[in-house]
Design a binder for these strands. Structure first.
Lengths: 154, 154
DNA sequence: GATTATTACCCACAACTACCCACAATGTAT
DNA sequence: ATACATTGTGGGTAGTTGTGGGTAATAATC
């Protein structure tokens, strides 16, 4: 029996090489379906990290965006901010994708990077930033955090 | 007659070998349904131990997580903390799963480990930690503990 | 159009993992 | 009591995975 399709979990420590390439963990590659192939959409995360979507997941986001009327200023602005930094990439024979200098700068990536599975997408972090970002948000919104934890039976 | 499906009970003493493998008790393997097959999700427990979910149980957790919008910072942080240390494993022909160095360190596992059935999941403990952890929490929250005990007819 | 920079593709290799087999200990059936 | 099956534990081997670098194709610059 196979894993849930397109579900990413776990944390992996990899290195960003001199050419700006990072490995996609083998476990993630196996999760992808045939339609997903080797195509991803890479973009800015809402946290200081890089988001990597399997193409199939990204397409469903695009479908949602299509529904938003351009008559609304907020809609226009939202679509713009969502799509602006997104570009499609494929992984090479060794399972690596290239991260653009833009994104490397945005997420402040250095040699050592942390790859996180986030259910339907993948995050690439500078390990130092991840810890502080998460600690912060859990402290600030600790009551909301607890509420979520109570709703979901682990 | 068989036990309830996917229900784990009892305690078993096993050894973690040099390659970081632990046996899944035969009694647990028999409890698994066909859909569960040999797939588990292994992750950090909320106590200093390792949690092992049958894949089917874990999927229901994932389904909840999928519903949380990534626009909310708390949601992102919550999803991250839930899936960060989770990864899927299968047991080999001898019925063993591999425990990652990360998790071994977190649960301070040594050669001798205790496997506990926890109804819908399995726990792997360093025996020394288990005793002290349980004693502690029952002392601190003894009134809450009694309340729970009253609710459930044993 | 020539030169340089960037990207994509390929190969190489060390480290690791998954798979297989072996065997002793325990449990079960005849 | 003996034979047989199951279970827990150890280790070897072949394939996979992560990482670096080289070369050719493409794009950018002068």
């Amino acid at each position: 029996m196979t894993i849930n399709q397109n579900t990413f979990t776990g944390e992996y420590s990899y290195s960003l090489d001199a050419k700006g390439r990072v490995n996609i963990p083998a476990k993630f590659r196996n999760v992808l379906t045939a339609e997903n192939d080797q195509s991803f959409v890479i973009t800015r995360g809402m946290d200081p990290c890089v988001w990597v979507y399997p193409i199939i997941v990204w397409q469903s986001i695009e479908d949602e965006l299509r529904k938003l009327s351009s008559l609304s200023q907020v809609n226009r602005s939202f679509v713009r901010s969502t799509v602006r930094y997104a570009s499609s990439v494929q992984y090479d024979k060794q399972g690596r994708i290239a991260v653009s200098p833009n994104l490397i700068e945005y997420a402040q990536l250095e040699k050592e990077v942390l790859i996180l599975g986030m259910v339907n997408k993948i995050e690439i972090w500078n390990p130092a930033l991840l810890d502080s970002a998460d600690k912060q948000s859990q402290e600030i919104d600790s009551s909301q955090f607890d509420e979520l934890a109570n709703q979901i039976i682990l």
